[in-house]
Design a protein around this nucleic acid. Structure first.
Length: 426
RNA sequence: GUGAGAAUAGCUCAGCUGGCAGAGCGCAGGAUUGUGGAUCCUGAUGUCGCGGGUUCGAGCCCCGUUUCUCACCCCA
């Protein structure tokens, strides 16, 4: 039997873990300062939650869901996104009765059945926030601010923040009439795909990459010009607050996002540098009708999701490092002969019980080999224990950085380690 | 779901028109017995992704399949 992970999944280990811990650590810390609390929801839900929430006509629901039946015949689906599950939890646990606005964030794996390629896996990780309560444009600005600051804190400097308003269902309906009127005369110039979109969802034609379609869409009416009074005012206020916060953003009139539930403000963070076609690092928007659509109180809400995998990928590509909270001096305990292991173990005990990251050689080899080993594995100190040390109850501590080594009494070793690691009580 | 390319040692890869399975790096041991990444010597390691077919003979040709990579679609 050939063992390999299923298509589109990956094992994450080594340095990748450091990047991810850094990303999720930054998220937890920053989201906390904005007043968000973490929520963990199940990896799978009833299928209906997604088909109704995301929209029956969307690609995700049509062809990208991992749907299966359990032993009682219930249709379940591995979550393809985080918003619908959070909304479900909010309603099920009646969280809105405890606190409004309700600000939650999540970190979790998502699943979409797609052809894998760079920056797009079948299992991928997202961190996201959902804020339900007032439809105050201040909330829109705060959420966009949070997204922006998040990437800033990670160390990114040249990402593009795109913002748009899709309007409420009312003004969008009006707009689509004008858009279709414009497109009617240009139908023959559009690609086959877009001609079918014309009926189903003309807004999506803005996403088409065929040059002819792009050209036609350049002159198409923009939704910004057709927003109703309240939506226009809302969007203007959002922009005003963003300006007030000094946030560098661009209005992209053709920014249209793929889930049916989005209303009004939508936004996206993209990289012009990402060495892949998947350049969207994160995005989100307002969904004022989703909660009521699921039978909850009429509660507007807004949120975003960030792709952890893509973010880590771009960090590596851009040479952005991570901070490792576990970083500290590491010790390599080397016993030069079998007989010294008893004594070496006592020393290892001191190291580990004072909180010093340490390992021991499990195979007796030449000191030269061990030295090479220690250097290659990035240890900071080597502790050498042979017949001499075991007999004299001493410890030879060698700094691999300064090349200096010293011999001390076993009784003094504990204090010496505390001095090096700074782990002593203060 | 559509299209293109790839899969050979732990890693990166070579392998001619079909004729004994290879290199570099890494790994293990050593160069007069306990100390610096060098150098030299020696050594181990393969279901050539998997399954069929053609052939006297297949890593190489043909078919299927799985996985990976890239693009499309869509998205994070």
């Amino acid at each position: 039997m050939k063992l390999n992970s299923p298509r589109g999944t990956a094992d994450i280990y080594g340095e990748d873990i450091k990047y991810r811990d850094f990303i999720t650590g930054c998220a937890r810390k920053l989201f906390h300062t904005f007043g968000y609390n973490e929520i963990i929801t199940p990896a799978f839900e009833h299928t209906e939650l997604f088909s109704r929430g995301i929209g029956e006509g969307t690609d995700i629901v049509q062809k990208e869901m991992y749907t299966f039946r359990d032993r009682k015949g219930r249709s379940l689906t591995l979550r393809p996104e985080g918003t619908a599950p959070v909304v479900r939890a909010i309603l099920e646990k009646n969280l809105l009765s405890q606190k409004v606005p309700l600000k939650l964030f999540y970190i979790g794996n998502m699943f979409r059945y797609e052809r894998p390629q760079k920056g797009r896996m079948r299992e991928f990780w997202q961190v996201g926030v959902e804020s339900s309560g007032p439809d105050n444009p201040l909330m829109d600005a705060e959420v966009i601010w949070l997204l922006n600051l998040f990437f800033n804190n990670l160390g990114f400097r040249d990402l593009n923040l795109l913002v748009n308003s899709m309007g409420c269902p009312d003004c969008r309906m009006d707009y689509v009439v004008y858009l279709k009127e414009y497109l009617k005369g240009n139908l023959p110039g559009l690609c086959a795909e877009c001609r079918s979109r014309y009926e189903k969802n003309p807004l999506r034609i803005f996403d088409c990459k065929v040059p002819e379609c792009k050209k036609i869409m350049e002159d198409a009416p923009k939704i910004g010009g057709y927003l109703c009074g309240t939506c226009r005012e809302h969007f203007l206020k959002v922009q005003g607050y963003l300006n007030e916060l000094g946030i560098d953003y661009r209005i992209k009139h053709n920014l249209v996002r793929g889930f049916d539930y989005y209303t009004r403000t939508v936004f996206e963070v993209v990289s012009g540098k990402l060495e892949s076609a998947q350049n969207a690092l994160g995005g989100g928007g307002r969904y004022d009708n989703l909660i009521s659509q699921f039978g909850g109180p009429d509660t507007p809400a807004i949120g975003f999701a960030v792709g952890i995998d893509r973010t880590a990928m771009l960090m590596k590509q851009s040479g952005i490092g991570y901070k490792d909270p576990l970083k500290g001096p590491r010790f390599y305990m080397v016993s030069l002969d079998e007989g010294s292991y008893d004594y070496a173990l006592k020393i290892l005990r001191v190291l580990r019980e004072t909180g010093a990251a340490s390992d021991i050689n499990y195979t007796v080899r030449s000191i030269k080999t061990e030295l090479k080993n220690a250097l290659r594995n990035g240890y900071d100190y080597m502790i050498i224990i042979g017949e001499n040390e075991a007999a004299d109850r001493t410890v030879t501590l060698k700094s691999l950085d300064t090349h200096k080594q010293s011999i001390m009494k076993f009784e003094d070793f504990n204090d010496e380690i505390l001095k090096i690691t700074g782990n002593g009580r203060s």
